[in-house]
Design a protein around this nucleic acid. Structure first.
Lengths: 344, 344
DNA sequence: TACAATAATGTGTTCGAGCACATTATTTTT
DNA sequence: AAAAATAATGTGCTCGAACACATTATTGTA
């Protein structure tokens, strides 16, 4: 194993040529005689040269700007940890000359999204990273960014477009299956189970559908398990829920969004503690009910890590020309009352 | 927010002094008049200067050597992923001039460990990273390394010593509690449960004890749950297990090592499929039984990530003078048949 | 006041890669 | 064979931080 760190200068000395010629060989710039090429290649074969990416990066030294366009956490607390991931990436890269800006918009308002995108577009950053909440508007924005040669990366939700360099997220179908396996494990055999969509805004419809099909696919071959779907809207949550539970023998609920604490609250109010609950995301309220054991499991979508990784992939590409993975699927963490604290 | 990347030269120009003086102020080297100090500090307050760590690192440019001393994966497959984490770190840092060497030893032979340590010691690397399997021998080795000014980091198991710069691992007590919560969730109330230690070599005794106390602590206030402990040795596994299960009404087993597949196999042989199983680690055999649902949950100790992180912490310190966390506790992942694939 | 002693400040080089430009070697053209 | 054209090779500067060394300014002392 080579301990020595070889430089272009070393190769030049070993081959009896100058660093200029070595450089031409390394980058295939031509203007090199066969003889010189051979002797340099011979040296290269012997020593396993690794260009010093620090020196390379210093030479290219340039300030980069990466803009994140994310929903306001005040409107939907799901996005809160996201900000923390951005902050960590910012701290890590600021001294490397990568400047990260976060632009918030109101997730209940498509025009707020479009407005923010245009504002970012005008400032012409090197890259834009965003979770594609609104399909149509996001595609339009992506095209605009692309036409200005701005890199685009997405996280949390996948959008099909070759103009997106990188997607960081989870396999939602699979996370539905995981929920299914968990509910199966903690409820008696032949239980009736219900998938609940809390449905204030319909933006998240795509996630929900994928999660539900994953959930149902798990039970496909188990005819004994009866699965129903329930759409619940905020005002009459207690009534809808009570109705549903009274008319069936439901033993477990799978809530497809981060709002499972609302169901836990409702169950408290209608005094039904005999139902198992599985939901998503480590919101404060969810964790409270998890520790109470009123929620049995949470599935961790890890928005913080999603934001962090999408930034680092882009930044490492800009700085060190590292390859960007076109798709990075994160592990799907199962959280209960006892391991939740280890994720902070 | 500052978009510009300020350099020492910029500060020099802004303060009307030379880069030498700015440098002296930045590093508190003295030999600077009050007047110069003030005007430079004034500029520093205004612009939030971030030294370019790439340039800094290039200046210090030096080849570093980090040696890992780990058990041979052929003897204990638990350590296999570890090698993969080392490989990834190696790939990431080789072009930065950090050379990572792995030295294997036989975990069933303390003299093999000591021999390897001495070999490494002679080569005087910049840092050594190892999981402290043998308490006494490891402490001795750590002292020797320290006396030669070699940094020491540990992972997987904690050893108390101020000479260790960094420890990456998990809270084993807590992982026992997690297992407890999981078994509670999948077994009927008032079940009898058993902690199983598979005990070929007694090296792992410390882990096992911590895991068991965590497990028991969870049930401390639940008098109804009866917990027994079973030490099983390889040859008469079937008999011991059958005996124990016949004389009690055991509903769940918690195996404190990565060998839970052996229990699953034994249960198959003695035809007991009515017992829930929780074990550790994503070994191939364990995953097979997990997917069969003969093992219900595995707890992921993430040796790969442990090795990877302990290396990156040390390397980032050597290269960029980043602070080393004295202790890094990893999340404790709960694995079932459905999410296991997302961890690879 | 002159001159040393010390304090304060400035200058120049290094790290390794990358590229513009200068120089030298070889071939082509007249 | 000499001049011109082109190919091949070498040199020198840059990126930003760090530090050795050189220079200038300000004291103190005879």
């Amino acid at each position: 194993m080579a301990i020595k760190k070889y430089t272009i200068k070393d190769i030049a000395a070993l081959s009896g040529l100058s660093k200029g010629t070595v450089d031409r060989v390394l980058h295939n710039r031509g203007k090199v005689s066969q003889k010189a090429l051979d002797s340099i290649n011979k040296v290269l074969k012997e020593i396993d040269y690794q260009p010093n990416i620090i020196a390379r990066s210093l030479k290219k030294s340039k300030a980069y700007r990466i803009c994140l366009i994310v929903p306001n956490a005040k409107t939907d607390p799901y996005w809160e940890p996201c900000t923390e991931g951005i902050r960590e990436a910012f701290e890590e890269y600021k001294s490397l000359g990568v400047f990260i800006e976060t632009h918030f918009y109101n997730p209940n308002d498509t025009s707020s999204f479009t407005y923010t995108c245009n504002k970012v577009l005008e400032s012409i950053p090197d890259a834009v990273i965003l979770p594609p909440l609104f399909y149509k508007q996001t595609l339009q924005a992506i095209h605009k960014f692309h036409s200005k040669k701005i890199l685009v990366a997405t996280f949390n939700d996948k959008i099909s477009s070759e103009l997106v360099e990188c997607y960081v997220g989870q396999d939602l179908f699979r996370s539905g299956k995981i929920a299914a396996r968990l509910l199966e494990a903690i409820t008696p055999k032949k239980s009736e189970l219900t998938v609940i969509h809390i449905d204030e805004s319909f933006n998240n419809a795509l996630h929900m559908q994928e999660k539900e099909s994953g959930f149902r696919s798990y039970f496909k071959d188990l005819k004994e398990t009866n699965i129903s779907t329930l759409h619940i809207k905020q005002p009459d949550m207690d009534k809808t829920l009570n109705n549903h539970l009274s008319n069936n023998h439901i033993k477990g609920l799978f809530i497809t969004t981060s709002k499972s604490f609302m169901i836990a609250q409702a169950l408290d109010r209608i005094k039904r503690n005999d139902v198992k609950l599985i939901g998503y995301d480590l919101l404060k309220e969810n964790i409270m009910y998890l520790k109470n054991q009123k929620i049995d499991f949470l599935i961790h979508q890890n928005p913080k890590q999603q934001a962090y990784l999408s930034i680092t992939h882009i930044a490492d590409y800009l700085l060190f020309n590292k390859q960007i993975p076109s798709e990075k699927l994160l592990p799907i963490d199962i959280i209960n009352s006892e391991n939740v604290d280890t994720y902070f």
